[in-house]
Design a protein around this nucleic acid. Structure first.
Length: 940
RNA sequence: GGGUGGUUAGCUCAGUCGGGAGAGCGACGGCCUUACAAGCCGUAGGUCACAGGUUCGACCCCUGUACCACCCACCA
């Protein structure tokens, strides 16, 4: 990493592009000068950053997402909008608490050793220590948020907003406390929401047990067979259910089972839920440990026996033998004991969905506890309408279906977490168990007229992290105060996010914001895909395929990269494989590509609605693109510095055909790039920019300038016109490219702005180019396209004939098209230079031709005399190939035109076009065939 | 079980209104040509997943199938 230095506008440009020399220095300058803050009186434009975890680090997904936001922000800032990019971080309750607990574990302690207060202190310390990392990394990406208003979801203001929201929702009857089954993570010892449970299919078993009938009901020789995937829960069974219409069991409904191992008598009940086709048609019912059983238990008023403690070990509701056993140990024991009793009928292999915590990966236990809930139905109704009405639009649109499907079937949201790190729930209990909600204890006492004698204790739990992030768009702008910023920037313009948090975050933000702010939080949701590795694999530590955006910017040697990928692994046995893989893919480590190249790679891959596969080969190509721009600028400066180029508004210049052509192409590029930005097609925008810069400006325009600038045949006015165009198109291109490649564009812009007659302290505030249709000179475009075709044809002959690049040769030309001769005359200099010709001579149509290699450009025939140059065989082969191609094309069109229905039904202009094409091909074919005959005779 | 997206060159992907299949990277051949070898010039490479249908005409519209990815759902 290079040391940062002050940018020097007057210093000559380095020979090659060295991003490390410019990026950090430029960023410091921007930030210190306060360029990122909103300014001016334009239309407000605002993006809220999805707040990354405060103790997190930047990964490829962030890099992608922030790059997209920054492009939008820089584009709108340059357009003159009053632009705010609100930045901040999230306290990320579970994730952060887990990190700190892991730290404690390495010291041999648990959070309980410290106690709540000390533990929270410890988390704050950790936050102060590591909290700056991700925001520093954001800076490395060139992100331009307004750092002066940075927020944190547990800062003072958020604390107030969260309390306010909780209290008001409670007052509105939209928050309630209830005892019911929740998803319980026995490692974290907290409830989690439905979204935090990932169910995946795993191999398991279906155990069939015999449940004998109770003594008075025909037992113990009569029994039912129940099937279960979770034998240990039988200790909490309070019924067996059958389908009411199942003929096999009609006589048993209402009778009783003597539950084995436990000795409890439980009823046989009838319920429609039971599928007679599945298993034996008999289901054991454990209302306290299964969501379906819970509902059935409620329907039939069954007792609910909770047999687990909060770590999923058996409690004293079970026979003594099993108490204290871990759930999977208990499973084995129960099966063994039932088998010993002769009650195990059989064990089948069975695939089942196993619910696991998304953080811990442990099996989630349905567990009966008191929790706080948000009643979501009324909120969801508004949220659905907002999207239906188009007040909020998803890009791409198909995500709206996903959103609707979830919203229409939304469950109440369990918002309490049995954690320590987070917003503590503003509720207090008296000794009688009455609940009071308020800002603090004093507020509660005052509000409810509770004397100091009454003992109050605050709820121990904290709120789900997403509860506070749901307030992000308005909470960051000062709510509940009605601030100027809130009025100016809310609703925000667009939310840029991944599909994975549409339910977690986007949906909840929409509900919360509509309820409290009476506005949508954002007008557009741009949903981007997941960044995967080059083979489409998810990046993960255990796969060892993780790329760090900072490593792509700064580069990294092989050894540190290996160390990074193999350290701190959960599964050390994968180390060797990852090492081998990494060595194979990055035998020389990763080069330093710089931020601009990384960003451009993201844009080029950002088509909508699909994940992106990140290939390091791509970034190299775009680093080369940066170098291309760098060198083009070098060339422009070499030719323009100290020379008149109309920088002071002089008008005594003359624009050539070539100048008018590149200006026209620039307008087209501008239109395409803006279209891409406006429609979130960053791939199309970046492609348009790339091809304009490389394939038009560099490959053709710069080359076409050289003859003008280096020859005495052109007037001062013509030269000035060319220099003026050269530098102004470059300057405009830099502005066009700035949202994508902020650093290199600023660096070069500072050096060319004066020559281009531009001024300003930073390109960030320069106006974004707008296409001017009046500058699209169709004639110039047609002429230069013609010129390119002629040059390409001649280069093609050179290559096919193996004429060395340095060897000049003469060319003869003739044409039936009257326009060709003047075109040729006008552009002869360019032709000679770019095709490296000795001469070019116009022939009358009836002139005698020497034996030549032939090429066609439109109607014009180009001849390269063969004397000493041309390989007859090669030329025959070339002609044959071209004749073949044209013949095929011609016959295809003949077929089409021979079809009466086509001629009758297709639009006239289409038919006419086909006819013209055919005529064209036929003329060309005739010429080539004539040549072929002529050359063949030489062959003998 | 329901739903969404995808299948186009060796790889990664564009493809607008239905009318002669494109880009980048890679490959191959030739060049240290006075901005750039991180470059220049040229070349090759496609049964647009498959099967039907609509149409004068289908990568594109319709139906079905296969495979891949993802989302949702309570079958013990």
């Amino acid at each position: 990493m290079s040391e940062s230095r002050e940018p020097e506008s007057n210093a000559p440009m380095a020979k090659t592009y060295q991003p490390a020399d410019i990026e950090q220095a430029r960023y410091s300058e921007w930030e210190s000068k306060g360029y990122f803050a909103p300014r001016g009186d334009g239309d407000p434009y605002c993006i809220m950053i999805p707040p990354p975890n405060v103790t997190g680090y930047l990964h490829m997904g962030h890099g992608f997402q922030e790059s997209i936001m920054d492009a939008l922000i820089r584009y709108h800032r340059m357009k003159g909008d009053k632009t705010l990019w609100q930045v901040g971080t999230d306290h990320a309750g579970i994730a952060t608490q887990m990190v700190v607990e892991r730290l404690l574990a390495s010291e041999g302690k648990t959070r309980h050793d410290l106690g709540r207060e000390k533990f929270i202190e410890r988390v704050w310390q950790w936050k102060e220590l590591s909290g700056g990392q991700i925001t520093q990394q954001l800076r490395r990406l060139g992100a331009s948020p307004d750092w002066s208003t940075e927020r944190f979801t547990m800062d003072e203001g958020f604390y107030k907003a969260v309390q306010e929201v909780f209290i008001r929702l409670h007052e509105d009857g939209l928050i309630y406390r209830g005892k019911r089954l929740v998803n319980w993570d026995p490692v974290l010892k907290t409830a989690v929401s439905d979204l935090e449970v990932i169910s995946e299919e795993e191999n398991g078993h279906l155990w069939h047990f015999r449940y004998p009938l109770a003594n008075g009901d025909g037992g113990p020789d009569r029994y039912l067979v129940v099937a279960t995937t979770r034998p240990e829960t039988m200790l909490g069974d309070t019924a067996v259910a059958v389908n009411p219409n199942d003929e096999r069991y009609q006589d048993l409904i209402g009778k009783r089972i003597l539950l084995p191992l436990v000795g409890r008598e439980i009823p046989i009940i009838a319920d429609d839920y039971v599928d007679p086709e599945f298993g034996t048609g008999c289901v054991k019912i454990t209302p306290a440990h299964d969501f379906n059983d819970y509902e059935m238990g409620q329907r039939h008023s069954l007792p609910m026996i909770n047999i687990f403690d909060d770590t999923a070990h058996l409690n004293d509701q079970v026979p003594e033998k099993y108490r204290g056993q871990e759930r999977f140990a208990a499973r084995k024991q129960v099966v063994a004991d039932l088998e010993a009793l002769g009650l195990l009928e059989k064990i089948d292999d069975h695939k089942l969905k196993v619910p696991r915590g998304d953080r811990t990966g442990v099996v989630i236990e349905p567990y009966l506890t008191d929790q706080w809930y948000v009643k979501t139905a009324p909120l969801a109704e508004q949220a659905i309408k907002a999207v239906e009405s188009g007040d909020i639009q998803f890009v791409p649109k198909q995500y709206e279906n996903m959103y609707f499907a979830w919203m229409r079937d939304i469950q109440d949201w369990c918002i309490s977490r049995q954690l320590w790190w987070g917003h503590r729930i503003p509720a207090w209990y008296d000794d009688a168990g009455n609940i009071y909600v308020g800002r603090d204890e004093a507020d509660v006492r005052q509000k409810h007229g509770l004397s100091a004698k009454i003992n109050l204790r605050q709820d121990e739990d904290v709120l789900d992290t997403w509860f506070s992030s749901g307030l992000w768009t308005f909470g960051t702008l000062g709510w509940p105060e009605s601030t100027e910023w809130l009025k100016t920037f809310h609703p925000t313009s667009v939310l840029v996010t991944g599909f994975d948090i549409i339910f977690f975050w986007v949906a909840r933000m929409i509900m919360m914001t509509l309820h409290f702010q009476k506005q949508v939080p954002f007008k557009t949701v741009y949903v981007h895909g997941l960044v995967r590795d080059s083979h489409g694999q998810k990046m993960s530590k255990s796969k060892g395929n993780v790329l760090d955006p900072i490593d792509l910017i700064d580069g990294i040697e092989l050894e540190p990269l290996l160390a990074k990928r193999t350290s701190g692994m959960m599964q050390p046995q994968l180390k060797a494989k990852i090492e081998k893989q990494t060595r194979a893919e990055f035998k020389d480590g990763i080069a330093a590509y710089g931020t601009d190249a990384l960003r451009f790679t993201y844009y080029s891959l950002a088509s909508t609605g699909r994940d992106i596969n990140f290939d390091v080969g791509r970034i190299e190509g775009f680093r080369n693109f940066c170098n291309k721009i760098w060198n083009a600028a070098n060339f422009v400066l070499m030719n323009c510095e100290g020379q008149p180029c109309g920088e002071s508004g002089e008008s005594d210049y003359e624009l050539s055909l070539v100048d008018r052509w590149i200006i026209a192409r620039l307008q087209q590029a501008e239109a395409a790039i803006i279209e891409g930005l406006e429609t979130y097609r960053f791939d199309l925008a970046s492609q348009a920019l790339h091809s304009f810069v490389w394939s038009e400006y560099c490959s053709w325009y710069l080359e076409l300038c050289k003859p003008v600038l280096n020859s005495d045949d052109y007037s001062a006015a013509q030269k000035m016109g060319t220099r003026r165009t050269l530098v102004r198109v470059l300057e405009t291109t830099l502005r066009l490219a700035h949202p994508f490649m902020p650093f290199i564009t600023e660096e070069i812009w500072q050096k060319v702005k004066a020559l281009a007659g531009a001024s300003g302290d930073t390109i960030m505030y320069a106006t974004y180019p707008v296409a001017d249709g009046g500058k699209i000179d169709e004639e110039a475009i047609a002429d230069i396209e013609w010129l390119k075709e002629v040059i390409t044809t001649l280069r093609n002959i050179r290559s096919a004939m193996n004429i060395p690049p340095a060897k000049k040769f003469p060319v003869l030309a003739r044409s039936a098209d009257a326009g060709d001769q003047p075109r040729l005359a006008t552009n002869a200099t360019f032709l000679i230079r770019l095709a490296n010709l000795e001469s070019i001579t116009w022939l009358p149509t009836d002139a005698e031709l020497p034996p030549s290699a032939t090429g066609l450009a439109g109607q014009m025939e180009l001849f390269v005399p063969m004397a000493g140059l041309i390989d007859v065989e090669a030329e025959l082969a070339r002609l044959s190939k071209e004749i073949d191609r044209l013949t095929k094309e011609a016959s295809r069109i003949e077929g089409k035109l021979g079809n009466e229905k086509f001629v009758a039904n297709a639009p006239a202009d289409v038919v006419e076009k086909e006819r013209a094409k055919l005529a064209d091909y036929q003329t060309s074919l005739a010429k080539l065939q004539e040549q072929k005959v002529k050359i063949s005779t030489l062959d003998d």
